Amino acid sequence: MKKIIFSLATLGLVLVACKKEASPASDAVKTDSAVVSSDSLADPDTTDTIAAANYTAAATNTQTAEKVRKFLQTEFKKDVDSKALQDNDKKFIQFEFDINDDGKKEIFVGLNGPYFCGTGGCTQYILNEDGTKLANFTVSDYPVVIDNTKTNGYKDLFIMSGGKYRIVKFDGKTYPSNPSTLPELKVVPGDGLPRALNYLNEPYPWFKF
């Protein structure tokens, strides 16, 4: 009788041990589902092979893209209606960054295609957080480097134009629209400075308007 009781007790310990060993497996299932959930994020650009989670974080917000889209559709309504813009012209990239430290992120917008780009560069915009225009630039290449110093409350920018980085300062209302006429930056901007619209070196989704 004692042997039977001992055997039952031993069997009980084995069952308890098995249950304890099974719990990590259930944790693994939760972890896997979390991974799947993050991988199943809506892809803002299905025309490439980049997974949604691998894009540059400041470039992917679809709500921000909708603000940009509405602005561009209004800004270029005549060109869209007249079909002056081809499909390749109606693409943009974006980058959110707070350039005046007010807690709201401004939106850098880069355009593409032969309508907006030439040998000197492309057309770019900076929008306020609400989607209204703060500044626009012509003949500007990518990326836009954001300096730590400020002028009139907004960070200075280094914009490539004509093969040279130009120093672009806020004048109290906006930034000058033609960087090619501005003073040249005599050194290469530091690697530690943020680079907006850096799609040539980082994964960016392209949106359409």
Rank of each mutant, 00 (worst) to 15 (best):
K2R: 14
K3A: 15
I4T: 15
I4P: 07
I5P: 03
I5Q: 10
F6H: 13
A9P: 08
A9T: 13
G12Y: 01
L13C: 14
V14W: 03
V16N: 04
A17L: 13
A17F: 10
A17T: 09
C18G: 15
C18V: 13
K20A: 10
P24E: 11
P24F: 10
P24S: 09
A25L: 14
S26Q: 13
S26Y: 11
V29A: 15
V35G: 08
S38I: 12
D39T: 08
D39I: 10
S40L: 15
S40H: 13
L41I: 09
A42E: 14
D43L: 00
D48T: 12
D48I: 09
T49L: 11
I50V: 15
A51R: 14
Y55I: 00
Y55M: 03
T56G: 06
T56Y: 09
A59T: 14
Q63G: 05
T64C: 06
A65Y: 01
E66K: 10
K70P: 04
F71M: 09
F71I: 07
Q73F: 01
Q73I: 00
T74Y: 12
F76M: 11
F76V: 11
K77W: 08
K78T: 11
K83V: 13
A84M: 12
A84T: 12
L85R: 11
L85I: 08
L85W: 09
L85V: 07
N88M: 11
K91V: 02
Q94S: 08
D98C: 01
D98R: 00
I99Y: 00
D101M: 09
D102E: 09
G103F: 04
K104M: 11
K105W: 03
I107F: 04
F108Q: 01
G110M: 06
L111V: 07
N112I: 04
P114H: 06
P114F: 06
Y115L: 10
G121S: 09
G121Q: 07
I126R: 10
N128E: 04
D130N: 12
G131R: 04
K133S: 10
F137Q: 03
F137V: 03
T138K: 13
V139Y: 07
V139H: 02
Y142K: 04
P143V: 03
V144T: 03
V144C: 03
V145Y: 04
N148K: 14
N148Y: 05
T149W: 03
T149F: 04
K150R: 08
T151V: 13
G153R: 07
D156A: 07
L157V: 01
I159V: 12
I159L: 11
I159G: 07
G162K: 00
K164F: 10
V168N: 00
D171F: 01
D171C: 02
G172N: 00
K173Y: 07
T174R: 05
T174P: 07
Y175W: 03
S180F: 01
T181F: 02
T181P: 02
L182W: 00
L182Y: 03
L182H: 00
P183D: 05
E184R: 02
E184I: 10
L185Y: 05
V188M: 15
P189G: 06
G190D: 12
D191G: 01
G192L: 08
G192S: 15
R195M: 06
R195H: 06
A196W: 05
N198M: 08
N198I: 05
Y199F: 15
N201S: 14
F207G: 02
F209Y: 15
F209K: 06
